[in-house]
Nucleic acid binder design. Structure first.
Lengths: 246, 246
DNA sequence: CGTTCCATTGAGACCCGTCAATTTCAGTGG
DNA sequence: CCACTGAAATTGACGGGTCTCAATGGAACG
């Protein structure tokens, strides 16, 4: 066996070593998307696989949180509580989403699994070292941070200026587009969260969310299917409504 | 003159060259905070100084925007418009703030000067090259992005779950803390924006903002001073109110 | 001194929240 | 297969916080 072949064989073995990454459905979407084989291996070494059941929390608001996460599979909700119990869900995370930008001290929100969850976890210190060692990782992180900021702005517009109908229409549209991007069917959304979660995400009450669902159903904009699925017969109309079409 | 002295002299000349940075009040706060002399020089070479008068826009929502900015002096508001004219201000920028994370394609918001403004401007391509060449710059950018995301979450909670009184209290508290950080006096805030701007930032109407100002004035929480200044006799009480103290 | 823009104040309406009852549904066990 | 159970969702009646519409007040500027 010549050296080139031996090298190739070695490379193959290495890919086997990082096998959890090689077959990871979240990799093309996550922070690790742009990494080469040996870079992936560095990351895999620093990472730890964690899972959680629905209702379990990854960490609590106010707790010191020495980890960052990558969602491999499942869904997570992030929320903050006001002293009197009012709750605001600040985001939902799905496959490929990164969790850990900001809040280097105490965590500013709670992260709770919506579904059975698999995630990659890194100690913050280790992750910072990776950022130093892997410029491609840091570039990717900057890009993701930019996307997150744009999403946050979108949500700020929604909460500040949109009506209840527009909020729900925006929500269904965005969730649908995200699920299509993740390989889901078009014209249909799955809702892994409860009405209360939706309400707390959209700055509404559960009753208002339920009423708007009924309005949409009555006007033919949606059909409620069994299993928390919603059919969207006219995605364009829903999207226009969500954008506040005058 | 020995070589060390000559080197020192040379270094001095170099600092003179980047003189706009050397005396820049925004530098210790901005993306360029952690940069060494020669790194600063690289940045200065790629940068361009721009200024604007109140009401002038740096760029418009929807326009292609090939620049990123660093606010050197003055204040900026960022906003998005819905088709029927509803406006949401997504943020105010002050000395040291960075503008340009996210929205690499068309700009998703309008940036308009509130006061006479000085800023540093970089072409996106040039800035990306700087990020490649200067790891310290990219590290700093990641940190800033994290801070911005936390601020956005704070605003999401405000818009989603707080009352008008809590919103204004939070706003005054945050603005005051920011101005203290920038060297302003304690117990006093300057408002470079109009009531309408505040309303569009807090998801309220100008009338509601005005009424709450009056309530706060009546209850002794604030005093309105000439020149758009507001005295905060009891910052702790204001802060508690803004956090939704039960 | 008039104009203009901004801020304040008032009266009434409306959207959404609150409170409460009912229905639906998934899961469990008889 | 069906009754039971508890959580989630829906629906209704009512109230309240904020918005809308309108008028007044006030400061900056020519």
């Amino acid at each position: 066996m010549n050296t080139a072949a031996a090298q190739a064989e070695l490379e193959k073995v290495r890919l086997e070593d990082v096998h959890p990454c090689a077959s990871c459905g979240a990799r093309p979407l996550g922070v690790c998307a742009d990494l080469k084989g040996h870079e992936l291996q560095s990351m895999a070494c620093a990472s730890e696989s964690v899972s959680a059941q629905p209702g379990q929390t990854l960490f609590h608001e106010g707790d010191p949180n020495p980890y960052v996460f990558n969602v491999v599979d499942g869904a997570v909700k992030l929320y903050r509580l006001l002293p009197d119990g009012r709750r605001q869900i600040t985001g939902f995370l799905f496959q490929g989403d990164f969790l850990g930008l900001g809040g280097r001290g105490a965590s500013s929100f709670t992260a709770e699994a919506l579904t059975p969850l698999n995630a990659c976890r890194f100690r913050r210190g280790d992750f910072d070292q990776l950022l130093n060692a892997l410029p491609a990782l840091e570039h990717r992180l900057v890009a993701l941070a930019g996307d997150e900021l744009m999403a946050a702005q979108e949500q700020i517009v929604l909460l500040g200026r949109k009506t209840a109908r527009e909020r729900l229409a925006s929500f269904l549209t965005r969730l649908s587009e995200r699920q299509v991007q993740l390989g889901g069917p078009e014209g249909q959304v799955h809702l892994p969260m409860t009405r209360l979660d939706i309400a707390d995400y959209l700055g509404l009450t559960i009753e208002t969310v339920s009423r708007v669902f009924t309005q949409f159903k009555t006007s033919g904009l949606i059909r409620l299917l069994p299993g928390n699925d919603v059919a969207l017969p006219d995605p364009a109309a829903l999207k226009a409504l969500g954008e506040g079409a005058a």
